[in-house]
Amino acid sequence: MAHTPVNHPARPVYRAIGGLVGLYFVLFGVIGLIASAGNDVLAQDDTKALGQGTNLGFSLLSIVLGAVILLGVVIGRNLDVAINQWLSYALMALGLAELAFLQTDANIFNFSIMTVVVVLTLAMVLLMAGMYGKVGTDEEKEAWQKARLVL
């Protein structure tokens, strides 16, 4: 992808931001797991964690997503870039789908409007971290700069 910066000077910062998003998902999932203990997996009730609607299913999903993001950050080698980009697209789709089904029985993860806002915001932050975290050789950086200057 010629439009993705290679060896951006702030890539360690963006990698750390991706790690913070992963930590947030793990923290939210653990708190949601504690709050929804004893409920059905896809219960639609008033369970909240950090001010957001959740249930056991979304709490478990959050822990898994956060762990995958953190694993990508630890491994690096552009694996974090791929994970951050693809998970951000998946989170955007999830947030928009849950927004569409917010007041219906199809709200399987018990989202509230605050949960939708947080998920979509974190998806955008994760996408930003994925776009600016790419590492490459000097030749790839040079090719990216030449392509950027042509545009």
Rank of each mutant, 00 (worst) to 15 (best):
I17G: 05
D45R: 07
Q52A: 07
I34H: 12
N39I: 02
N55R: 03
F28G: 04
P12H: 13
L56A: 10
F25P: 05
D45Q: 11
A35N: 13
G38C: 07
G22K: 04
A43R: 05
A10L: 15
A49N: 04
V26S: 09
Y24D: 08
Q44P: 01
L60W: 11
L20F: 14
G53S: 00
V41L: 14
D40F: 06
I31E: 08
V13S: 05
R15N: 08
L23S: 12
A16L: 12
L20W: 12
L61E: 07
I31Y: 06
I17D: 05
G32Q: 08
D46T: 12
V21I: 15
Q44N: 10
S36I: 01
A49S: 14
L60P: 02
L20R: 06
V26E: 08
N39E: 15
G53R: 00
L56H: 05
F25Y: 15
F25V: 10
V26R: 09
H8V: 02
S62D: 07
N55P: 04
T54S: 06
F28W: 11
T47G: 00
N7R: 08
H8L: 02
I31C: 05
G38E: 07
I17N: 07
V26G: 07
L50W: 01
T54F: 01
G57E: 02
T4G: 04
A35M: 10
S36T: 12
P12F: 13
V21H: 05
N55V: 03
G29Y: 10
L27E: 02
A49D: 04
Q52H: 03
A35F: 03
S36R: 00
L20K: 05
D40V: 04
K48N: 00
L56D: 01
G19M: 12
G53H: 00
G32P: 07
V30F: 13
V13G: 09
Y24N: 09
V6T: 10
N39Y: 11
V41N: 03
Q44F: 02
L50R: 00
G38M: 08
L20P: 03
A10C: 06
D45A: 11
T47D: 00
L60F: 12
P12D: 15
S62M: 06
V6I: 15
G51N: 00
I34V: 15
N39S: 14
I31P: 01
L33A: 13
G22H: 03
F25A: 14
V41A: 11
G38Q: 07
G57N: 03
S36V: 02
V6P: 07
L61A: 15
V21W: 10
R15L: 10
F58Q: 06
P5M: 09
R11N: 12
G18T: 04
L23A: 14
V26H: 09
H8R: 01
S36A: 15
P12Q: 13
V6D: 06
L20D: 03
G18L: 05
R15A: 12
G53M: 00
P5C: 09
